[in-house]
Design a protein around this nucleic acid. Sequence first.
DNA 1: CGATCAGTTGAGAATGGTCAAATTCGGTGG
DNA 2: CCACCGAATTTGACCATTCTCAACTGATCG
Lengths: 242, 242
Amino acid sequence: MILPSPLMRKLSARFALSYLEIAMIERLEKNHRTFAPGQQLIHEGQGHLSAFILRKGWAFSSKILPNGSRQIIEIQIPGDFLGLRSVLFNASDHNIEALTQIQASEVLLSDVSEALSQYPLFAAAILWAAARDEAMVVEHVVDLGRRSAEERIVHFVLELAARLRLVGIGDDTGFDCPLTQQLLADVMGLSSIHVNRILRSLREEGLLTFQKGRVSLDDSDRLKCLASFDPAYLDQGKISSR
Amino acid sequence: MILPSPLMRKLSARFALSYLEIAMIERLEKNHRTFAPGQQLIHEGQGHLSAFILRKGWAFSSKILPNGSRQIIEIQIPGDFLGLRSVLFNASDHNIEALTQIQASEVLLSDVSEALSQYPLFAAAILWAAARDEAMVVEHVVDLGRRSAEERIVHFVLELAARLRLVGIGDDTGFDCPLTQQLLADVMGLSSIHVNRILRSLREEGLLTFQKGRVSLDDSDRLKCLASFDPAYLDQGKISSR
DNA sequence: CGATCAGTTGAGAATGGTCAAATTCGGTGG
DNA sequence: CCACCGAATTTGACCATTCTCAACTGATCG
């Protein structure tokens, strides 16, 4: 028996997948490819016939503005689909780039649609995952629009921690994190210098340490309170299965 | 023959719907309901079995933060689906509220899924519309994260003008707009006072007038340049049908 | 004619940005 | 092991954008 892939872990946390479905997902994830840091997986404005399932490493999608500044839309971690929407809609409106060395499975549009129509529980699980992604983007809008720099950074880190834990990365004390302060700034709509200042003050307050590729949650309770973090939007499955 | 509904206009602009499909959409939109301004169509945290197709009037979806501030996620205009995702995913994570007097058709989840499976072109059209909504949220993230107050207001107004024109509302000179400055502020992540100042300066510069429920685009070219507005993300259909 | 609500304006404060200059850190080659 | 390089981080000083508070105007409605 192969080790469960991150996607499998994520979906299994909410759905009781049958043996047949597990075997199907394993087939879907068979075709591995690796990418080097900085490599583009999907380019702006291109139509695509394949998407990727991220197995190892981190990626991000972003838009570059004419003035050269960059806004990162979402950070992708193992178990996430990359470019699924681009595939379904045959139009990608942003770039997806490898943040670290990446291992991803390339999947054809046709294979995904076939799986969706043949395995209803898989379809439900993928819809759930897509709804979760959507909710994260909505939360990102709230972060950028109505939360202070400190609140939004803490909120983002807590969200990331929750996502990573679901695929078995990191623990209650923190997680390894390849994000630079510049990347974090481009996620949060801030300057890297201001991000640095906020991180220092959080460290000095004993709240969280974001250094040398490692994030330590030094006081989870106080962090959750500070950012008024409510993970409900990440756990919709629980709600709907009541 | 009934006048085409806004949804029909929107979809017809990109897809050559057959007579059967048009008749089906008319059946889907048969069940009219009206809502008063301020009325909630969908509440946070509720599961729903029905969605709405907006026929007349404006609505918006928002999230309220514990500190009382509000972030509007998107503004909905005639021809838009309300709560489609909530229905598909059986979990709504934000409120939808009538902004003006509204006329909407309530549609059952079962009827939508049936239509989607029986009419492939309708399914493609709905996917296209959903992708467009998604792209607008992404652009909203860019607005909030990396554009100045002036740029983001202009960008938003131009987007709104383009959306409205697609359903036959407004023209090249402008459109009627029920948004108050406070609502616009909650869309753009700004204070209403700052919105007021920016609108004044735009008016004094002869760029756009946003007054008394009317938006006049006084100098479209300069506006598009100022906000580096590229409507490509609203016209994905054109790209993919090349 | 109040009352209410949206819009206006000013003044001062705060949050976050820009510029410039260290400093640290992880390699890499000698 | 050491010197060095480039990238990431850190810090300070100053500046700009945007916010908050408070007061005032103007329209609308019973």
